[in-house]
């Protein structure tokens, strides 16, 4: 799209684009205010230049997260490594684990999965199917078992089998449920205690259709299990996942991977430029 002259209507239009992409009111205002300042400072007259400027503005925000965290790669070097996957119900945790196991296996890693969701109906069978597809081993107990015990066994098995990466599934939980967050913290402490030598990654899975609640989710999950990265799923839909701009800068946790479908190959690295391109379009 090309715009006419730079006026309030143009800024309103950009504001609408951002809010409609779930960037959130406050972050949107901040971005637009900075944009207005830049336009003044750089004496920009061409409305076409303003979109580039907006992209740079957002890129700047996202780059800060990258700088402080070195990059957006999974922290799984050196082996052994453990990846704990957490998030609210239905976000895409189990599916992401299937895809991730497949990718890591393609990279020549020895992968083991632990079925830490012992609560949801057929969660274990679902993960089992993914382990089959990715052709990796699975450690599982029965439905209703203590999830911390499953993770404990997973760690022992990873040590015994000399796995490079152990990926742990957990049950979906809403962050405002105290008991479930305590349960997650217990799992996290088992990881810390039993596998201190492992490289550690704690991934929060966020559905791209989620609105402003994602920020609250991330805050509370970070307290319970010190998340180190975010996976943004379901970006193959029409939602843009704009809430991760504020999420990343407020919590200083980078998005590391994106989910773009239900197939085993549909997990990709997060790319700042393409994310912004899709956001502003």
């Amino acid at each position: 799209r090309s715009y006419g002259k730079i006026d309030d209507d143009l800024f309103d239009e950009l504001e609408e684009v951002l809010i409609t992409a779930d960037v959130g009111v406050n972050t949107t205002m901040e971005i637009i205010d900075n944009l207005k300042n830049q336009v003044k400072e750089q004496k920009i007259k061409e409305s076409n230049d303003i979109r580039e400027l907006l992209k740079e503005e957002i890129e700047g925000t996202l780059k800060k997260v990258e700088d402080s965290k070195t990059d957006r790669k999974l922290n799984i070097e050196p082996s052994p490594a453990i990846i704990l996957v957490v998030g609210v119900n239905g976000a895409g945790k189990t599916t992401t684990i299937g895809k991730m196991a497949w990718n890591l296996k393609q990279e020549g890693k020895k992968v083991l999965i632990a079925a830490g969701d012992t609560f949801r109906a057929a969660a274990i069978e679902q993960l089992e199917e993914w382990a089959n597809r990715a052709d990796v081993d699975l450690v599982a107990h029965k439905e209703g078992a203590d999830p911390a015990a499953v993770i404990y066994d997973g760690i022992q098995a990873a040590k015994a089998r000399k796995s490079d990466v152990l990926i742990c599934d957990t049950a979906g939980r809403l962050h405002n449920k105290k008991n479930l967050m305590n349960e997650l913290n217990k799992i996290f402490r088992v990881v810390e205690r039993e596998y201190p030598e492992a490289s550690k990654e704690v991934l929060l899975v966020v559905d791209a259709t989620t609105g402003q609640n994602a920020i609250l989710q991330a805050k509370v999950f970070k307290e319970a299990c010190d998340i180190t990265g975010v996976v943004l799923t379901k970006l193959d839909g029409t939602a843009k996942g704009g809430v991760v701009i504020a999420l990343q800068s407020e919590l200083n946790v980078p998005v590391k991977l994106i989910g773009v479908g239900e197939g085993i190959d549909d997990l990709q690295p997060f790319d700042t430029k393409s994310f912004i391109e899709a956001l502003i379009g």
Partner: peptide
């Protein structure tokens, strides 16, 4: 519909 859904709820 998931009650956590954001702006995209209308499109869906």
């Amino acid at each position: 519909v998931d009650s956590m859904t954001g702006q995209d709820a209308v499109t869906v």
